[in-house]
Design a protein around this nucleic acid. Structure first.
Lengths: 148, 148
DNA sequence: CTGTATCCGAAATGATACTG
DNA sequence: CAGTATCATTTCGGATACAG
Protein backbone atom coordinates (compact mmCIF):
# COMPACT_ATOMS: atom_id res chain seq x y z
CA UNK A 1 0.00 0.00 0.00
CA UNK A 2 1.36 3.39 -0.91
CA UNK A 3 1.58 6.36 1.42
CA UNK A 4 -1.16 8.07 -0.55
CA UNK A 5 -3.52 5.14 -0.18
CA UNK A 6 -2.69 4.86 3.51
CA UNK A 7 -3.50 8.50 4.07
CA UNK A 8 -6.81 8.24 2.26
CA UNK A 9 -7.81 5.23 4.31
CA UNK A 10 -6.85 7.04 7.53
CA UNK A 11 -9.10 9.92 6.66
CA UNK A 12 -11.98 7.71 5.57
CA UNK A 13 -11.82 5.95 8.92
CA UNK A 14 -11.92 9.28 10.73
CA UNK A 15 -14.88 10.36 8.68
CA UNK A 16 -16.81 7.17 9.35
CA UNK A 17 -16.03 7.28 13.06
CA UNK A 18 -17.43 10.77 13.34
CA UNK A 19 -20.40 9.87 11.19
CA UNK A 20 -19.97 12.84 8.87
CA UNK A 21 -21.95 12.56 5.68
CA UNK A 22 -19.40 14.62 3.71
CA UNK A 23 -16.38 12.50 2.83
CA UNK A 24 -13.04 14.32 3.34
CA UNK A 25 -11.51 13.15 0.07
CA UNK A 26 -9.53 16.30 -0.62
CA UNK A 27 -5.82 15.95 0.03
CA UNK A 28 -3.16 18.54 -0.70
CA UNK A 29 -0.57 15.76 -0.81
CA UNK A 30 -2.28 14.10 -3.75
CA UNK A 31 -1.00 15.40 -7.04
CA UNK A 32 -4.32 15.27 -8.86
CA UNK A 33 -6.52 16.56 -6.05
CA UNK A 34 -8.09 19.95 -6.72
CA UNK A 35 -6.98 21.07 -3.29
CA UNK A 36 -3.37 20.54 -4.33
CA UNK A 37 -3.84 22.98 -7.19
CA UNK A 38 -5.46 25.45 -4.82
CA UNK A 39 -2.64 25.00 -2.34
CA UNK A 40 -0.02 25.53 -5.03
CA UNK A 41 -1.80 28.68 -6.04
CA UNK A 42 -1.94 30.05 -2.50
CA UNK A 43 1.56 28.93 -1.53
CA UNK A 44 2.95 31.87 -3.40
CA UNK A 45 5.08 34.72 -2.16
CA UNK A 46 2.94 37.53 -3.52
CA UNK A 47 -0.45 36.03 -2.70
CA UNK A 48 0.50 35.43 0.92
CA UNK A 49 2.03 38.87 1.34
CA UNK A 50 -1.06 40.51 -0.12
CA UNK A 51 -3.35 38.57 2.20
CA UNK A 52 -1.24 39.49 5.22
CA UNK A 53 -1.12 43.08 4.11
CA UNK A 54 -4.87 43.43 3.68
CA UNK A 55 -5.43 41.80 7.05
CA UNK A 56 -2.98 44.11 8.77
CA UNK A 57 -3.87 47.39 7.08
CA UNK A 58 -7.49 46.82 6.15
CA UNK A 59 -9.00 47.87 2.81
CA UNK A 60 -6.39 49.22 0.45
CA UNK A 61 -6.23 50.83 -2.94
CA UNK A 62 -4.18 49.33 -5.71
CA UNK A 63 -1.42 51.87 -5.29
CA UNK A 64 -1.52 51.44 -1.53
CA UNK A 65 -0.95 47.74 -1.90
CA UNK A 66 1.90 48.30 -4.28
CA UNK A 67 3.58 50.51 -1.70
CA UNK A 68 2.83 48.17 1.18
CA UNK A 69 3.99 45.02 -0.57
CA UNK A 70 7.38 46.45 -1.30
CA UNK A 71 8.91 45.28 -4.55
CA UNK A 72 5.84 43.87 -6.22
CA UNK A 73 5.36 44.92 -9.82
CA UNK A 74 2.05 46.16 -11.16
CA UNK A 75 1.84 43.04 -13.26
CA UNK A 76 2.30 40.58 -10.40
CA UNK A 77 0.07 42.58 -8.09
CA UNK A 78 -2.72 42.64 -10.65
CA UNK A 79 -2.31 38.97 -11.41
CA UNK A 80 -2.28 37.88 -7.77
CA UNK A 81 -5.23 40.09 -6.88
CA UNK A 82 -7.24 38.67 -9.79
CA UNK A 83 -6.60 35.15 -8.63
CA UNK A 84 -7.51 35.96 -5.04
CA UNK A 85 -10.63 37.75 -6.23
CA UNK A 86 -11.59 34.89 -8.51
CA UNK A 87 -11.36 32.41 -5.65
CA UNK A 88 -13.52 34.59 -3.45
CA UNK A 89 -10.84 35.63 -0.97
CA UNK A 90 -10.62 39.27 -1.95
CA UNK A 91 -13.22 41.79 -3.02
CA UNK A 92 -12.50 44.40 -5.64
CA UNK A 93 -14.59 47.55 -5.51
CA UNK A 94 -14.45 50.19 -8.23
CA UNK A 95 -15.51 53.72 -7.36
CA UNK A 96 -16.37 55.39 -10.66
CA UNK A 97 -14.36 58.57 -10.59
CA UNK A 98 -11.66 60.23 -12.60
CA UNK A 99 -9.12 59.15 -11.90
CA UNK A 100 -10.61 55.76 -10.97
CA UNK A 101 -10.41 54.58 -7.39
CA UNK A 102 -10.23 50.84 -6.80
CA UNK A 103 -10.30 49.37 -3.31
CA UNK A 104 -9.45 45.83 -2.30
CA UNK A 105 -10.45 44.15 0.94
CA UNK A 106 -10.73 40.67 2.37
CA UNK A 107 -13.86 38.56 2.25
CA UNK A 108 -14.55 36.07 5.03
CA UNK A 109 -12.50 33.23 3.53
CA UNK A 110 -9.66 35.65 2.93
CA UNK A 111 -9.73 36.79 6.53
CA UNK A 112 -9.70 33.19 7.71
CA UNK A 113 -6.73 32.36 5.57
CA UNK A 114 -4.87 35.55 6.40
CA UNK A 115 -5.26 34.75 10.09
CA UNK A 116 -3.37 31.52 9.44
CA UNK A 117 -0.75 33.08 7.20
CA UNK A 118 0.18 36.07 9.33
CA UNK A 119 1.79 33.95 12.06
CA UNK A 120 4.07 32.45 9.44
CA UNK A 121 5.22 35.88 8.37
CA UNK A 122 5.86 36.78 11.99
CA UNK A 123 7.64 33.49 12.63
CA UNK A 124 9.85 34.11 9.63
CA UNK A 125 10.85 37.52 10.94
CA UNK A 126 11.60 36.15 14.38
CA UNK A 127 13.61 33.23 13.06
CA UNK A 128 15.46 34.75 10.15
CA UNK A 129 18.60 35.39 12.18
CA UNK A 130 18.65 31.83 13.41
CA UNK A 131 18.15 30.44 9.91
CA UNK A 132 20.86 32.68 8.49
CA UNK A 133 23.22 31.46 11.20
CA UNK A 134 22.40 27.84 10.41
CA UNK A 135 22.99 28.62 6.77
CA UNK A 136 26.45 30.01 7.44
CA UNK A 137 27.35 26.99 9.47
CA UNK A 138 26.07 24.68 6.78
CA UNK A 139 27.97 26.50 4.06
CA UNK A 140 31.15 26.49 6.14
CA UNK A 141 30.92 22.75 6.62
CA UNK A 142 30.22 22.08 2.98
CA UNK A 143 32.70 24.56 1.55
CA UNK A 144 35.70 22.28 1.86
CA UNK A 145 33.74 19.06 1.74
CA UNK A 146 36.50 17.01 0.11
CA UNK A 147 39.08 17.02 2.94
CA UNK A 148 40.69 14.54 5.34
CA UNK B 1 5.59 59.04 4.67
CA UNK B 2 5.44 55.73 2.87
CA UNK B 3 3.66 52.64 4.11
CA UNK B 4 7.00 50.99 4.68
CA UNK B 5 8.24 53.83 6.86
CA UNK B 6 4.95 53.90 8.74
CA UNK B 7 5.18 50.21 9.49
CA UNK B 8 8.73 50.50 10.72
CA UNK B 9 7.78 53.34 13.02
CA UNK B 10 4.82 51.37 14.35
CA UNK B 11 7.07 48.50 15.28
CA UNK B 12 9.71 50.71 16.81
CA UNK B 13 7.07 52.27 19.05
CA UNK B 14 5.89 48.82 20.11
CA UNK B 15 9.43 47.79 20.89
CA UNK B 16 10.15 50.89 22.91
CA UNK B 17 6.92 50.59 24.84
CA UNK B 18 7.79 47.05 25.87
CA UNK B 19 11.35 48.04 26.60
CA UNK B 20 12.88 45.28 24.55
CA UNK B 21 16.56 45.81 23.83
CA UNK B 22 16.39 43.97 20.50
CA UNK B 23 14.87 46.16 17.82
CA UNK B 24 12.38 44.34 15.56
CA UNK B 25 13.80 45.66 12.33
CA UNK B 26 13.03 42.58 10.22
CA UNK B 27 10.02 42.97 7.98
CA UNK B 28 8.82 40.50 5.37
CA UNK B 29 7.06 43.34 3.58
CA UNK B 30 10.34 45.14 2.93
CA UNK B 31 11.88 44.07 -0.33
CA UNK B 32 15.49 44.24 0.86
CA UNK B 33 14.97 42.72 4.29
CA UNK B 34 16.63 39.33 4.76
CA UNK B 35 13.37 38.04 6.22
CA UNK B 36 11.68 38.73 2.91
CA UNK B 37 14.15 36.47 1.16
CA UNK B 38 13.59 33.80 3.79
CA UNK B 39 9.84 34.17 3.42
CA UNK B 40 10.05 33.88 -0.33
CA UNK B 41 12.08 30.73 0.06
CA UNK B 42 9.63 29.16 2.48
CA UNK B 43 6.51 30.29 0.66
CA UNK B 44 7.02 27.52 -1.82
CA UNK B 45 4.72 24.65 -2.71
CA UNK B 46 7.28 21.88 -2.24
CA UNK B 47 8.93 23.23 0.88
CA UNK B 48 5.63 23.63 2.67
CA UNK B 49 4.36 20.21 1.63
CA UNK B 50 7.59 18.60 2.80
CA UNK B 51 7.39 20.31 6.18
CA UNK B 52 3.76 19.26 6.62
CA UNK B 53 4.60 15.77 5.55
CA UNK B 54 7.48 15.34 7.98
CA UNK B 55 5.34 16.74 10.77
CA UNK B 56 2.47 14.40 10.00
CA UNK B 57 4.39 11.22 9.29
CA UNK B 58 7.55 11.75 11.35
CA UNK B 59 11.03 10.86 10.14
CA UNK B 60 11.02 9.74 6.54
CA UNK B 61 13.45 8.34 4.03
CA UNK B 62 14.03 10.08 0.75
CA UNK B 63 11.94 7.57 -1.14
CA UNK B 64 9.23 7.76 1.49
CA UNK B 65 9.00 11.50 1.05
CA UNK B 66 8.84 11.16 -2.68
CA UNK B 67 5.86 8.84 -2.30
CA UNK B 68 4.20 10.98 0.35
CA UNK B 69 4.60 14.27 -1.49
CA UNK B 70 2.87 12.98 -4.56
CA UNK B 71 4.18 14.36 -7.82
CA UNK B 72 7.48 15.78 -6.61
CA UNK B 73 10.48 14.92 -8.75
CA UNK B 74 13.78 13.73 -7.30
CA UNK B 75 15.33 16.99 -8.40
CA UNK B 76 12.82 19.24 -6.64
CA UNK B 77 12.71 17.04 -3.57
CA UNK B 78 16.49 17.09 -3.25
CA UNK B 79 16.65 20.80 -3.84
CA UNK B 80 13.93 21.66 -1.34
CA UNK B 81 15.35 19.33 1.29
CA UNK B 82 18.80 20.87 0.88
CA UNK B 83 17.42 24.34 1.42
CA UNK B 84 15.44 23.27 4.47
CA UNK B 85 18.49 21.48 5.84
CA UNK B 86 20.70 24.45 5.17
CA UNK B 87 18.40 26.76 7.10
CA UNK B 88 18.33 24.38 10.04
CA UNK B 89 14.72 23.27 9.69
CA UNK B 90 15.36 19.70 8.65
CA UNK B 91 18.01 17.18 9.68
CA UNK B 92 19.51 14.76 7.20
CA UNK B 93 20.92 11.54 8.63
CA UNK B 94 22.89 9.09 6.51
CA UNK B 95 23.06 5.50 7.66
CA UNK B 96 26.15 4.03 5.99
CA UNK B 97 24.83 0.93 4.30
CA UNK B 98 24.59 -0.49 0.86
CA UNK B 99 22.29 0.60 -0.49
CA UNK B 100 22.49 3.87 1.48
CA UNK B 101 19.68 4.80 3.80
CA UNK B 102 19.00 8.49 4.33
CA UNK B 103 16.45 9.71 6.85
CA UNK B 104 15.02 13.20 7.13
CA UNK B 105 13.29 14.64 10.17
CA UNK B 106 12.33 18.02 11.57
CA UNK B 107 14.50 20.03 13.92
CA UNK B 108 12.84 22.34 16.45
CA UNK B 109 12.48 25.32 14.11
CA UNK B 110 11.07 23.02 11.47
CA UNK B 111 8.51 21.65 13.90
CA UNK B 112 7.52 25.16 14.90
CA UNK B 113 7.04 26.22 11.33
CA UNK B 114 5.27 23.01 10.33
CA UNK B 115 2.80 23.58 13.16
CA UNK B 116 1.89 26.89 11.55
CA UNK B 117 1.79 25.55 8.02
CA UNK B 118 -0.30 22.45 8.58
CA UNK B 119 -3.46 24.44 9.41
CA UNK B 120 -3.13 26.17 6.06
CA UNK B 121 -3.03 22.85 4.27
CA UNK B 122 -6.08 21.73 6.20
CA UNK B 123 -7.87 25.01 5.56
CA UNK B 124 -7.17 24.66 1.86
CA UNK B 125 -8.71 21.21 1.79
CA UNK B 126 -11.78 22.37 3.67
CA UNK B 127 -12.27 25.43 1.49
CA UNK B 128 -11.36 24.15 -1.94
CA UNK B 129 -14.96 23.48 -2.89
CA UNK B 130 -16.01 26.95 -1.87
CA UNK B 131 -13.15 28.55 -3.78
CA UNK B 132 -13.88 26.48 -6.87
CA UNK B 133 -17.50 27.59 -6.69
CA UNK B 134 -16.47 31.24 -6.39
CA UNK B 135 -14.20 30.71 -9.35
CA UNK B 136 -17.01 29.36 -11.51
CA UNK B 137 -19.20 32.28 -10.61
CA UNK B 138 -16.42 34.73 -11.34
CA UNK B 139 -15.68 33.13 -14.68
CA UNK B 140 -19.35 33.09 -15.59
CA UNK B 141 -19.66 36.80 -14.88
CA UNK B 142 -16.53 37.67 -16.80
CA UNK B 143 -17.13 35.36 -19.76
CA UNK B 144 -19.40 37.75 -21.62
CA UNK B 145 -17.98 40.90 -20.11
CA UNK B 146 -18.55 43.10 -23.15
CA UNK B 147 -22.35 43.24 -23.13
CA UNK B 148 -25.05 45.87 -22.62
C1' DC C 1 18.74 3.75 -2.73
C1' DT C 2 20.06 8.41 -2.96
C1' DG C 3 21.53 11.32 -5.15
C1' DT C 4 24.24 14.59 -9.09
C1' DA C 5 24.80 16.67 -13.78
C1' DT C 6 22.96 18.23 -17.94
C1' DC C 7 19.74 19.49 -21.36
C1' DC C 8 15.75 21.91 -22.63
C1' DG C 9 10.99 23.40 -23.01
C1' DA C 10 7.56 25.86 -20.15
C1' DA C 11 6.29 29.09 -17.00
C1' DA C 12 7.15 33.11 -13.95
C1' DT C 13 8.55 37.70 -13.67
C1' DG C 14 10.53 42.43 -14.60
C1' DA C 15 10.79 46.42 -17.70
C1' DT C 16 8.57 49.20 -20.74
C1' DA C 17 5.12 51.38 -23.42
C1' DC C 18 0.39 52.24 -24.00
C1' DT C 19 -4.90 53.02 -22.52
C1' DG C 20 -9.46 54.44 -20.31
C1' DC D 1 -5.05 55.97 -10.89
C1' DA D 2 -5.41 51.46 -12.33
C1' DG D 3 -4.59 48.75 -15.14
C1' DT D 4 -3.32 45.99 -20.08
C1' DA D 5 -0.08 44.34 -23.72
C1' DT D 6 4.24 43.02 -25.21
C1' DC D 7 8.89 41.63 -25.06
C1' DA D 8 13.21 39.94 -22.87
C1' DT D 9 15.13 37.42 -19.33
C1' DT D 10 15.27 34.45 -15.69
C1' DT D 11 13.90 30.66 -13.25
C1' DC D 12 11.40 26.40 -12.67
C1' DG D 13 11.02 21.97 -13.26
C1' DG D 14 10.69 17.45 -15.76
C1' DA D 15 13.36 13.88 -18.34
C1' DT D 16 17.34 11.50 -18.81
C1' DA D 17 21.78 9.61 -18.02
C1' DC D 18 25.23 8.64 -14.80
C1' DA D 19 27.50 7.71 -9.97
C1' DG D 20 28.66 6.41 -5.00
Amino acid sequence: MTTQEQREQDRQSEGQGAGRGQEQALDVFAQLCPSRAMFAELADKWSLLILMCLAELGAQRFSGLQRAVDGVSRKMLTQSLRTLERDGLVRRTVHPQTPPRVVYDLLSPGRELAALVTPIGRWTELNTERMLAAREEFDALHAGAAEE
